[in-house]
């Protein structure tokens, strides 16, 4: 006999490709080490909320030696910035991030060449970090602001450009063979649910989400992507359902189209696994889309673990859960009767 509240756990694994699919993906960026020890980075992107501007500022800071808050970024204008293309396909960190890294390296190299000559040291000994430039093995140090000033007085504006390519190939039209991506990520999520066998309501109480994202640029940002992806996956698993009748929607507002709220959210434990990409300067891959893939199947597998029925048609609404339970009960009764 089943109790009213039943708990269970399920797991699902997943994989995903980074950047545009089955094509040559590319992006470009420009960089300049600017007055006052700041950096100007010109790319064709802005935020869609994923945190790309902060990620790019971190990358520019790391590559040039200024601080992230000293980076000016985000131009998102086809008439003023190089091609960045699509803000999607889990490609921002990979495509634009690597372009920015390469552009910044070129600008830094110009600066380092001038400062090395100024100090009469090898350029290879120079290190810049957090607004200060030093020559290793010496006491020589100056602020990035001074460094840019000296570089410019020597007649050089330290600018750079960079582009990055992801070499995908199209699929064969007959057997589908091909190399759609050069970088792949993998993920696994475990869900713990409680099912109310009287109302059919499912609550997700915990999600453990382990994802490979390559090298992590901003851990909190990655967690935010995982949490957002998990909750969208949960919405699709349990409640969201766009409905039409003869092409007319019957879910035309948020009163009818039900979305997860803060009350539906499980505790989410993110585990960031780093398997750096060997084909790119940064080694970072991505997380935007892959975070959502395993959530719904992990929840469905957990429902099965809890109450012994499998929901194969999303969403697992209370009505569907109750119907599946009733069907299972009838099946078992039938089996008993047949014995």
């Amino acid at each position: 006999m089943m109790q009213r509240k039943m708990r269970g756990r399920g797991v699902a694994a997943s994989w995903y490709g980074i950047a545009r699919t089955a094509t040559v993906d590319r992006a470009g960026a420009w960089a300049e080490l600017d007055d006052g020890g700041t950096a100007k980075v010109v790319t064709g992107v802005t935020e869609i909320g994923e945190g790309i501007l902060t990620v790019l500022a971190q990358i520019a800071a790391e590559e040039t030696g200024v601080r992230p808050e000293d980076v000016t970024i985000g131009d998102n204008d086809t008439a003023r910035s190089p091609e960045a293309a699509h803000a999607g396909a889990t490609r921002q960190t990979y495509m634009i991030g690597n372009s920015v890294a390469l552009a910044c390296r070129e600008a830094r190299e110009k600066l380092f060449t001038e400062i090395a000559a100024h100090w009469d040291v090898e350029a290879a000994t120079l290190v810049a970090f957090d607004g200060v430039l030093r020559a290793e093995g010496t006491n020589l140090a100056m602020s990035m602001a001074e460094a840019v000033d000296i570089c410019k007085k020597r007649g050089v504006v330290p600018v750079g450009s960079g582009h990055f390519t992801s070499h995908g190939t199209g699929l064969d039209p007959v057997d589908g063979s091909g190399r759609p991506w050069q970088a792949y990520v993998f993920g696994t999520q475990v869900a713990e649910v409680e099912v109310d066998t009287v109302t059919g309501e499912v609550q997700v109480l915990g999600i453990w989400a382990a994802h490979d994202i390559g090298r992590v640029i901003n851990p909190r940002g990655v967690e935010g992507q995982i949490e957002g992806g998990v909750v969208q996956g949960l919405g699709q698993a349990l409640m969201e359902d766009y409905q039409t009748v003869n092409g007319h929607t019957t879910t035309h507002g948020f009163a009818k189209y039900i979305l997860p709220t803060s009350l539906d959210v499980p505790e989410i434990t993110s585990v960031l696994v780093e398997d750096p990409d060997p084909l790119s300067p940064l080694g970072a891959k991505g997380i935007g889309e892959p975070a959502l893939v395993p959530t719904a199947p992990a929840i469905m597998n957990a429902i099965h673990d809890a109450i012994g029925v499998r929901i194969k048609s999303l969403p697992a609404s209370p009505e569907k859960v109750l119907a599946a339970l009733a069907e299972e009960e009838a099946r078992q009764d039938g089996a008993v009767a047949a014995e």
Binding site: G176, G178, Y184, F186, Q189, A210, V271, V273, D275, P278
Partner: peptide, 18 residues
């Protein structure tokens, strides 16, 4: 699609989630 993988981190994410 018959692409040879140089690495696959699925073993690591399975273990991490477990």
């Amino acid at each position: 699609t018959q692409q040879r993988l140089d690495s696959a981190s699925i073993d690591r994410v399975l273990e991490a989630a477990e």
